Computed example of a mutant assay.
Amino acid sequence: MGKTLKKNKVTAVRQACKCIHSGNCVLKHPTVFESKEKPWIKIEDSSTEKIIDTAKKCPSRAST
């Protein structure tokens, strides 16, 4: 199991071992996925819909 983040009724799970580093998350949603920051995922800075949309576009399904 990866890192779990929660916002409203959404639970986002980041599974680093599955990530192929395509950059889709950072390119499509840079306010939430900031690769040079720690923590690099800032789920509170986005709408629930945008988080879901970004996770669905992850080619490796590392973000679900």
Score class of each variant (00 low, 15 high):
1 M>S: 14
1 M>R: 09
1 M>Q: 09
2 G>M: 04
3 K>L: 13
3 K>V: 10
4 T>S: 04
4 T>Q: 05
4 T>H: 04
5 L>F: 13
5 L>W: 02
6 K>H: 07
6 K>G: 04
7 K>I: 15
7 K>V: 14
8 N>D: 13
9 K>S: 15
10 V>A: 14
10 V>K: 07
10 V>M: 12
11 T>D: 14
12 A>L: 15
12 A>P: 00
13 V>P: 00
14 R>C: 07
14 R>T: 08
14 R>F: 13
14 R>Q: 07
15 Q>S: 12
15 Q>P: 10
16 A>Y: 03
17 C>G: 07
17 C>L: 09
17 C>Q: 11
17 C>A: 11
18 K>P: 00
18 K>S: 01
19 C>H: 04
19 C>F: 08
20 I>Q: 05
21 H>A: 08
21 H>N: 08
21 H>F: 00
21 H>K: 09
22 S>T: 07
22 S>R: 01
24 N>A: 15
24 N>S: 11
24 N>V: 15
24 N>G: 12
25 C>M: 15
25 C>Q: 02
26 V>E: 00
26 V>G: 10
26 V>R: 00
26 V>D: 02
27 L>P: 01
27 L>I: 12
28 K>H: 10
28 K>I: 03
28 K>N: 11
29 H>T: 02
29 H>V: 05
30 P>V: 14
30 P>Q: 03
30 P>M: 14
31 T>N: 11
31 T>H: 09
31 T>Q: 05
33 F>Y: 12
33 F>D: 00
33 F>W: 05
34 E>A: 05
34 E>L: 11
35 S>M: 08
35 S>L: 08
35 S>V: 02
35 S>H: 08
35 S>Q: 06
37 E>Q: 12
37 E>Y: 11
37 E>A: 12
38 K>I: 09
39 P>Q: 04
40 W>P: 06
40 W>S: 15
41 I>V: 15
41 I>G: 03
41 I>E: 01
41 I>A: 03
42 K>E: 12
43 I>P: 03
44 E>W: 14
44 E>I: 07
45 D>V: 01
45 D>E: 13
45 D>F: 08
45 D>K: 12
47 S>N: 03
47 S>I: 02
47 S>H: 01
47 S>R: 01
47 S>Y: 02
49 E>D: 07
49 E>Q: 10
49 E>H: 06
49 E>L: 13
50 K>P: 01
50 K>W: 14
51 I>T: 06
51 I>K: 03
51 I>Y: 00
51 I>A: 05
52 I>D: 01
52 I>M: 09
52 I>R: 03
52 I>C: 04
53 D>F: 11
53 D>W: 08
53 D>Y: 13
53 D>L: 11
54 T>Q: 08
54 T>E: 08
54 T>W: 03
54 T>D: 05
54 T>S: 10
54 T>M: 09
55 A>F: 13
55 A>G: 05
55 A>K: 08
55 A>Q: 14
56 K>V: 11
56 K>I: 07
56 K>Y: 14
57 K>R: 09
57 K>E: 13
57 K>H: 08
57 K>T: 12
59 P>V: 12
59 P>G: 09
59 P>D: 10
59 P>Q: 05
60 S>P: 05
60 S>Y: 11
61 R>H: 07
61 R>F: 11
61 R>K: 10
62 A>F: 02
63 S>F: 09
63 S>V: 06
64 T>Y: 13
64 T>L: 09
